[in-house]
Design a protein around this nucleic acid. Structure first.
Lengths: 356, 356
DNA sequence: AGACGGTTTGCATTCGAATGCAAAAATGCT
DNA sequence: AGCATTTTTGCATTCGAATGCAAACCGTCT
């Protein structure tokens, strides 16, 4: 450390007479000067578990309070290589149907000392741009509840940014995932339909590129097979209420005789479907038409709908996603994990004995 | 390049032989070394409008691409004193009823080159903590669609952090605000009710501390006065569907004779109210009971409800909020501005001639 | 008193990009 | 070519906090 003494290095902590210019925020140097200690001491005061005496802590804290000093998270991030930022990638769909997911995730992140940097992603190109942004902001991790291609995921992996997928995953690549597997409940519901005498069912599915939709459809198909209920037609919607109404019309058009039961891949379309059945086709639900669906969003239980639906425990899932990202941020080399939650049937009142 | 040769200052750009250790991200120095230029040149390449020749830009960009270099926004923020982060404060309520607001705001911020740092705020204490967090992260501005006390606002002002309020403001303090003033539409709707022969109306309001609720209630009262419709009772809910159902029961209990019209301060309660009227009290809506409300959220127009409601143009409002924060970030000393949007009546089918 | 161990403290350096300034290069003009 | 002017480039420093290391301090025990 023998430093050439003649070197005229201007020391930050003395000659500069810039005490508290209005608008300038206090730095650790300001606090140090006021408290008559070194900047390191100030820094250590704000680091839990650092070696510091009670007396010193007190003095520093007093000065800090006086100057309203709060450590600069940006500067801290630069030196520690930890931004404490987590990118949360959501699509419009998620925020429309599960607004609470985002809310919950943010809350949980905050209580783990992390901040949510929110990104909206509709298309794969969006994802591209968003990933670059996130990278620029040195996010410590990513929670993805939106589109992301395998290439994009691999890029993040290569950059060693931990990713947790929410309700989607790559089956041919190791990844950390939280999702819901409602296969048991699907069996259960289909069994109920069969027991109620339903022999024909229509299926309303979601976008082709959506994994949740694909998986649910797969389970439904399997269960229909098991219980000998015939799928008379399958129509594609886009998860929206509107598309549910259109899908039912389409089913009506495609089939000579309307099936007695409709299975919708999400609640929102089921609600559209139900409204369409009642107000346009003049059918009574559940007397003339039984409807079941997936998600268990809040409004599916409003008195006008009371859907029989398979709920995802999104509260617990959000919580799990945060736990997992926190863990992976701390131990990036840890092996991957999938956390799979069961669904739960909400009985509702949208199914009944098939009309004869 | 004339570097004093005897000075043993370890130059970042040579002797360190750390080229692309796995996991280490490329810095501007790495790019500079590869391209054979100075770090400043690299920096300038990524700053639009900086003085740089085409040739140099090309060389640097090539090296940058090779190393997958992206400037570190954290380091940039430290030196420029601009984080490009905007704190977005939302409450659970907002995200439940207006999920698209958050989505829209985030999108708009992104297209202005800013990132949304999301904070959830339920109580005033939350706000306290959130403001400190935001301050630590050196946010350039705050969009507040949640609780915030005047003291908290003043703190932000003192710290020179621009704030834009979304659907709330302090009337006795200058501030920058975007909100909706539906007074015209309230008049219009009440006039319609009167014309349809309604003489008595019940009012379902929201939480006492909520400004939007207070304002709407004020307008309703005024209009009822103007058109000579009597307010037979006023019940408080909490904006939720559930509380709408309870509120209608309460009205039923409080009044000898049910009013012929109910005005709800938001759609969600109106939906609860309507469902309760139909499925519990056995009333037909709108034949026996007319219901009107505020907000114009998506599901208020589902076939089961088709509410006559007064819409807020939240898309435009979100956009405006972002425009305003961007402007205030660039010119903090500019005077304040309120942007007030009109509401719009969505006709719906939840009102009809009063039963005689 | 002296020696030893443990705890506090300060010094100096670091993170990565931006920028004022001066040197260097390119351009224009006579 | 020679000089003035403009543009490009590099150097050195800066932002604010964290931290390895050595120096200083404290208490204890012989």
């Amino acid at each position: 450390m023998a430093n050439s003494p003649q070197k005229k290095k201007p020391s930050k902590s003395d000659d500069k007479v810039v005490p508290l210019i209005k608008g300038r925020r206090a730095t650790s140097y300001d606090v140090a000067r006021l408290a008559g200690v070194s900047q390191s001491a100030v820094s250590r005061c704000f680091k839990p578990g650092a070696s510091i005496s009670g007396k010193m802590r007190e003095r520093v804290m007093k000065a800090a309070k006086e100057l309203e000093y709060q450590p600069n998270a940006i500067a801290r991030g630069l030196i520690t290589q930890r931004s404490n930022l987590v990118a949360v990638l959501v699509s419009g769909r998620l925020s429309l149907y599960y607004p609470e997911v985002l809310f919950k995730i943010t809350e949980e992140l905050a209580s783990a000392g992390l901040q949510a940097l929110l990104f909206t992603v509709e298309t794969e190109e969006d994802a591209e741009a968003v990933i670059e942004q996130a990278w620029q902001y040195q996010v410590d991790g990513v929670i993805s509840a939106s589109h992301m291609s395998q290439a994009q995921y691999k890029l993040l992996e290569k950059r060693q940014i931990p990713v947790v997928f929410f309700n989607r995953y790559f089956s041919d690549h190791p990844n950390t995932v939280v999702f819901c597997d409602p296969s048991e409940q699907v069996q259960d519901v289909v069994k109920q339909l069969q027991a109620l005498g339903h022999k024909h069912a229509g299926l309303i599915i979601g976008p082709e590129d959506n994994m949740v939709s694909r998986e649910r459809a797969r389970m439904v198909d399997a269960s229909l097979g098991v219980y000998g209920v015939e799928k008379v037609c399958e129509v594609r919607g886009d998860f929206s209420y509107e598309s549910g109404t259109l899908a039912l019309q389409e089913i009506n058009r495609q089939t000579r005789e309307m099936p007695t039961a409709i299975i919708c891949i999400n609640d929102m379309m089921a609600m559209g479907c139900m409204d369409e059945a009642r107000s346009v086709l003049g059918l009574e639900v559940p007397k003339d038409l039984s409807i079941v669906s997936f998600d268990g969003i809040g409004m599916s239980q409003f008195a006008s709908y009371e859907l029989t639906t398979i709920r995802q425990p999104i509260g617990r899932m959000s919580e799990a996603a945060v736990r997992m990202i926190v863990e992976r941020v701390d131990r990036p080399d840890q092996s991957h994990e999938k956390r799979v939650f069961e669904g739960a049937v909400i009985p509702g009142g949208s199914i009944a004995r098939a009309p004869s």
